[in-house]
């Protein structure tokens, strides 16, 4: 279980890594994947910071998305019809929490989730322009939202990521 500071540290580390190779456009598929993991850490950080969240309209108190099954079980919140609380589907739990609690970044996160899955498994050659647009639309927006909403200072220095 990680705290907000640990997630922010990991997010910044991933941003720095991304910035170390992004403008070479040699590893575009990896750029998309790293950007997605920056956002995973941001989402986990905001879950930790906010703690009091909603799930299916019920109030819950959690620190990490992976707490959801145990907390929901204890609170007798029924699982979704096609998911058991014992399933190890952290991405699914995170996406559920995100959609209900942080709708302002949910669509952008889903877009990046989809793109990163596509980059890892189905599409290896990425156009540089496409990478720029994807990262500006999703990563840059989510980082900016996080810094503004949670008074944080995750640093992005490369103009192509701003």
């Amino acid at each position: 279980m990680s705290s907000d500071s640990q997630h922010i540290y990991q997010a910044q580390k991933n941003v720095d890594f991304l910035e170390s190779f992004i403008d070479q456009y040699k590893f575009n598929d990896w750029a998309i994947t790293v950007a997605f993991y920056v956002c995973v850490h941001i989402v986990e950080a905001v879950i930790f910071l906010k703690k009091d969240l909603k799930h299916q309209g019920y109030s819950i108190r959690i620190e990490n998305s992976e707490d959801l099954p145990a907390v929901a079980t204890a609170a007798k919140i029924p699982p979704p019809k096609n998911l058991s609380w014992t399933a190890k589907l952290n991405h699914a739990f995170r996406n559920l929490l995100l959609a209900e609690n942080f709708p302002e970044i949910s669509e952008k996160y889903n877009y990046l989730y989809s793109k990163s899955k596509s980059a890892r498994y189905y599409c290896y050659k990425w156009d540089s322009k496409d990478v720029d647009l994807t990262l500006k639309y999703s990563l840059a927006f989510i980082v900016s939202w996080f810094n503004k909403t949670f008074s944080n200072s995750l640093k992005i220095s490369k103009p192509i990521l701003k």
Binding site: S118, Y122, C123, Y124, K125
Partner: peptide, 23 residues
């Protein structure tokens, strides 16, 4: 409405080579 989770991705083939066999 249904309390069912759907996992959906989009794979854009525009100007890209897809690995159709993995897909």
């Amino acid at each position: 409405n249904q309390k069912r989770i759907i996992e959906i991705i989009q794979v854009n083939q525009k100007n890209r080579e897809l690995d159709h066999s993995v897909l």
